[in-house]
Design a protein around this nucleic acid. Structure first.
Length: 1058
RNA sequence: GGGCCCGUAGCUUAGCCUGGUGGAGCGCACGGCUGAUAACCGUGAGGUCCUGCGUUCGAAUCGCAGCGGGCCCA
């Protein structure tokens, strides 16, 4: 049986109870099990990094995933999903280093790599546990007991296998390249790991002396003085115009400078030159080849040996001097120029950012400290044109925030540039939500992509499976653990992490020993292989063949350069196609002012904060409905509270009929919608139709992953259609006591609608939906699926759809609102009935709607009659007021105009209008008996309302409320006042709904007493008074006695239990 | 500096694709209801639709430029 619920909406309690229910019934696993024969759906969870706690953004991410998967599951999709954990890499190393108080790699080496690795592992596993609990609390159903974890052997093998494919397809490259380098972490980092932030650096202009020309200098600009000792060349744009000009210094000396013509002024200003004269202009391409001397040749011995020349480069921009300092060992573009022109890749800087022996004077010095020294040295040699500082965006290591440097080092690369065209074609084949996420944003990113540096000089990561012979240099890529064991001395139980794999020796054909190269993979490569690693490929090919590629993934827009990209890259290498078929890109959670949430700003709100206050369903409904998925979400507590209030109303809507249903032992298994068909009212058919329309709207929204529209639709239906309207309409029906078909029809309809609503709620507010379902369905039908999440999504029942009725009801609601508005104007409360409501319909449809729903209208407006005028006609009881136009009367009647105007006002508007229409004029008799002729332009008309009538506009047309009282109406009004107060007193005594009372009422006013007397029986019935005494004089007694002032009439009432 | 997205009432937003007098919720003020009741409902005030220019008979909507915010990149 359906149970009455007394509690108000207590999310905490409900969610706890439901969680326990899910646990006890193994609901998650059995729900998945139930769909095993359905159409397959492969979802890949973007693995959160196992550091710290989940934040609002991660919560939103998982909530989106969960809602969509629950929705699909209810559509009988057989879903493969494993949550993922990203557990390797620098972030964890940095955390662990912090815990252990380490400052550099040396500390790690002396602690022991094996010890360090186990600390990292321990840390990652601990975080995973904590985060899993937090995700589960959100109501997220994923395979928590069997997640994919990047630190597992099966996962590592997926990465190894992929690298082996790269080698086979000649997409793997090793060599010296300039990479982003973190001098603290002493490792290369990927482009995607570089974080840009403002930083102040020196900004210097340096003069390079032209060889063989006296007192002549090329002027270059740089923000990295420390790279001057590594300068090898100068680049100019081939088609820019450059000038040789004589410049006069402040000290009166002159020198000849070379810079882009358009930038001469800039150079002169920077160098505080007082005068200049252009000697010669020439194009960049003509400048190429010019030889110059290193300004620090005396300090860096190798610099004296290098030749320094000017080269052409298209990327040079017309800024600063137009001549660009080239250090091929310290810049991406510089490196390219170096390779193109076969220049030495001179890189006298070591991993920690200290100069090597090659740097001569600077050897051992840290490059940041060297800046000042270099500047000093340049100044001493008179090669410094100016020195300033500049604040610019500069790359930092994303984890330790150290400014990065560029170093030419030996690294491993995936040749993404060779795959680019195919990747762009694959992007087209993927469905992107929204469309521009793929067609614009991701496309742009891939178009600019460079080869992917996948090697890191670190410890905690997937070891790069390349073994290199120490004798002959031969290299071999290992694809699986088994292959490694077969080819080497390794035992079958070998741990695939460092330092253990480092000890494995593979005998080389040449007789030498092959040792592993020491690098580990970029962590982005870990998650890149997730779509097949999660299927345990390559160990198990079966699942892979059945499920891959992913049907759907969804992540935040920061993952454009991250996981969307890394997955695509790795999959192109492994399989030559995209690993996903559709992608939903979602936004970021920001604080209330639109700023990023960050610890340093102190504006972080955690999911737990929200859950503690309002529960998980509210959090879910809020993040899902607040904005479109792809838009950023400005977190706003007030809005969360508003959503919570909506859910509370939903709860009250759900709760409302339960006591009556329970009392009447209503059994939906016996009373079907079919069986009450004949008793259905228009409003019943209306809400059934609305429910179908809602299913349609939600389905349509979900087909484009417009989760916000779906949730808003459901909440709007609940608030507008159910709470504010249908429930109001059926309330009197639920109070009837007999086995009334009218009541049963209302129950049955409400039940049907609630069951539908519960299913629609399930994907989005899974706890609440479950709680409702257990009471509504499971309590009456033991054969029903055990959990709401095992149910099928409701199908639209076309037979219930009635768009005309829906439109008519909208019209009716508008009329009720207008009537309420008019009542307010005329000062008549709703409790007091009115004689009639007059509607002047603007359209035939409006008239039809009024007729069809007149009982609803009578009911809701508390009126005795609904009167319709003809379509487009005004109400014939309206008066017509004459408004004389003084501007027209004045010139004609001069000094009599005032009198004429006064007399005209008194004329019956209808008479005047008729005269104008028939005769074109009107003979007006003035007070003195004389008469004048009035023509139509002299008067305007205004409709006037009859006494006691007020009007208001509605979508149907004007609505008039005739609030004139008759004794019957007044009697009913007072009676209702009495009823309302007696009910209030019942409440105060805390009586049960169906408990009988004794009531006594004294109304001293004889007139009112006379009005109320005939309705004595009605009052007694309404308040369940077994005995009811109404008098004008008798003393009032009872358990509770109160004196009331009812509209100025004194009344005294007393009640007690019968 | 570049790409993409966003900018509508005090706050959160709908409308924008497909141009035709800008809708809602919260909050505020006033009122109603009182067998959902520490709940619910109505009415009202409140808008340079970020700014400017353009296209058009007509622009929140289309185009261009700028400003502000977000993400990403250089």
């Amino acid at each position: 049986m359906i149970k009455e619920i007394t509690a108000k909406y207590e999310a905490e309690q409900i969610e706890q109870k439901v969680t326990q229910f899910w646990d006890e019934t193994d609901a998650y696993r059995r729900t998945r099990e139930r769909r095993k024969t359905g159409k397959k759906l492969f979802f890949v969870d973007g693995p959160p990094y196992t550091t710290g706690h989940i934040h609002l953004g991660t919560a939103w991410n998982k909530i989106i995933k969960d809602s969509i998967l629950r929705y699909y599951s209810m559509h009988n999709r057989n879903i493969m999903e494993r949550p993922g954990w990203d557990m390797h890499g620098l972030p964890i190393e940095v955390k662990v280093e912090g815990v252990l108080g380490f400052k550099s790699k040396k500390d790690i080496e002396s602690f022991g790599v094996g010890n360090f690795i186990s600390k990292c592992k321990e840390f990652a596993l601990g975080q995973q546990q904590a985060m899993t609990e937090q995700f589960e609390r959100l109501g997220v159903w994923l395979q928590w007991e069997a997640p994919y974890m990047t630190l597992k052997d099966e996962y590592i093998e997926a990465a190894w296998w992929t690298l082996k494919q790269a080698e086979k397809k000649d997409l793997l490259d090793v060599g010296k390249r300039v990479v982003n380098w973190c001098p603290r972490c002493e490792t290369a980092i990927a482009d995607s790991e570089v974080e840009y932030a403002d930083r102040t650096d020196p900004s210097i202009y340096v003069k390079f002396k032209v060889k063989g020309e006296e007192n002549t200098f090329i002027v270059i600009w740089t923000t990295t003085p420390w790279t001057i000792p590594s300068n090898i060349a100068v680049a100019v744009h081939p088609s820019f115009e450059y000038a040789k000009f004589r410049a006069v210094r402040q000290d009166g000396k002159e020198e000849v400078l070379i810079a882009a013509t358009t930038l001469i002024e800039n150079v002169l200003r920077k160098g505080r030159y007082t005068d200049y004269e252009i000697l010669e202009t020439l194009l960049g391409e003509d400048l190429a080849g010019l030889e110059y001397e290193s300004p620090l040749a005396d300090l860096v011995p190798l610099q004296a040996e290098f030749r320094h020349n000017v080269y052409e480069a298209e990327y040079v921009t017309a800024e600063n001097t137009g001549c660009v300092h080239i250090a091929p060992g310290h810049g991406m573009d510089d490196f390219a120029v170096g390779v193109k022109n076969k220049l030495p890749i001179f890189c006298p800087v070591g991993p920690s950012g200290a100069y090597t022996e090659e740097a001569g004077k600077y050897a051992g010095m840290n490059i940041r400290e060297a800046n000042a020294v270099v500047i000093e040295d340049l100044l001493e040699r008179d090669r410094l044109l100016t020195e300033e500082s500049i604040t610019h965006r500069y790359g930092h290591c994303w984890r330790c925030k150290t400014p990065i440097i560029y170093l030419a080092t030996e690294q491993w690369f995936l040749k993404i540039t060779e795959l680019k065209e195919k990747m762009l074609a694959e992007i087209e084949a993927v469905d992107w939500y929204p469309d521009w996420a793929g067609s614009a944003r991701f496309r742009t990113w891939v178009e600019g992509a460079r080869d992917w540096c996948i090697s890191r000089q670190r410890y905690w990561g997937i070891p790069i499976p390349v073994w290199k012979c120490r004798k002959c240099g031969k290299m071999e890529v290992i694809g699986t653990k088994q292959e490694l064991v077969e080819k080497s001395n390794a035992s079958a139980e070998i741990e695939l992490h460092r330092p253990y794999v480092d000890e494995v020796i593979i005998p080389c054909e040449c007789g030498g020993d092959m040792k592993r190269v020491e690098d580990v993979f970029d962590v982005w490569f870990d998650s890149a292989v997730a779509s097949w690693a999660t299927l345990k490929f390559p160990q198990h090919e079966e699942d892979f063949n059945e499920w891959w590629p992913a049907d759907f993934i969804t992540e935040g827009h920061d993952q454009t350069r991250g996981w969307f990209y890394s997955q695509l890259g790795a999959s192109m290498v492994g399989f030559g196609r995209a690993p996903y078929k559709s992608v939903l890109m979602h936004g970021f959670t920001l604080d209330g002012t639109g700023k990023k949430m960050s610890k340093s700003l102190g504006n972080v709100i955690t999911p737990q904060d929200v859950i503690d206050k309002f529960g998980a369903d509210t959090l879910r409904a809020y993040v899902l409905s607040a904005s479109a998925p792809w838009e950023d979400l400005k977190f706003n507590w007030e809005e969360v509270a508003t959503v919570h209030r909506s859910i509370n109303i939903l709860w009250n809507v759900f709760r409302f009929p339960l006591p009556y249903m329970a009392l009447d032992k209503f059994d939906p298994m016996k009373v079907s919608l079919d069986s009450v068909r004949d008793a259905l009212r228009e409003e019943d058919r209306w809400i059934l139709s609305r429910a179908q329309s809602m299913i349609k709207a939600v389905d349509e929204a979900m087909s484009g992953y417009l989760l916000h529209k779906a949730v808003r639709e459901i909440l709007e239906f609940t608030l507008e259609d159910l709470s504010r309207w249908y429930i109001q309409l059926i309330r009197p029906r639920t109070w009837t006591e007999a086995e009334d078909p009218d009541k049963l029809a209302a129950y049955s309809v409400l039940y049907e609608v609630y069951v539908t609503l519960t299913r629609l709620l399930a994907p989005f507010m899974p706890y609440l939906a479950e709680e409702m379902y257990q009471n509504l369905v499971r309590n009456v039908d033991p054969k029903a699926p055990e959990s709401i999440h095992m149910c099928d999504w409701p199908e639209v029942n076309e037979a219930y759809l009635d768009p005309e009725l829906e439109a008519a009801m909208t019209t009716a609601r508008s009329i009720v609102e207008a009537a309420s508005n008019a009542r307010q104007k005329v000062g008549r409360k709703l409790r007091w009935p009115v004689a009639r409501i007059v509607v002047s319909p603007e359209t035939g449809a409006a008239a039809v709607a009024v007729k069809r729903l007149s009982s609803v209208l009578k009911d809701q407006t508390n009126s005795k009659a609904i009167v319709l005028t003809g379509v487009g006609e005004s109400w014939d009881e309206l008066g017509l007021e004459v408004i004389p136009d003084p501007g027209k009367l004045g010139p004609v009647f001069k000094r009599d105009a005032g009198k004429v105007s006064a007399a005209l006002k008194e004329v019956d508007g209808a008479v005047l209008k008729k005269a104008f229409a028939e005769a074109g004029e009107f003979e007006l008799t003035l007070a003195d008996g004389s008469s004048v002729t009035i023509t139509p332009e002299m008067a305007n008309f205004a409709e006037t309302l009859p006494e006691g009538v007020a009007s208001a506009g509605s979508s149907a047309g004007l609505v008039y409320v005739d609030a004139n009282l008759t004794p019957e109406l007044e009697g009913e009004g007072y009676s209702r006042e009495v009823i309302r107060r007696l009910q209030d007193m019942r409440k105060e005594l805390d009586l049960i709904v169906d408990e009988n009372i004794k009531a006594e009422v004294r109304i001293e006013d004889e007139r009112v007493m006379g009005l109320v007397e005939p309705l004595k029986g009605l009052i007694a019935e309404e308040v369940r008074a077994a005995s009811f005494e109404l008098s004008s004089a008798a003393e009032v007694s009872g358990a509770l006695v109160k004196a009331w002032d009812v509209e100025g009439i004194a009344m005294k009432m007393g009640i007690s239990k019968a």
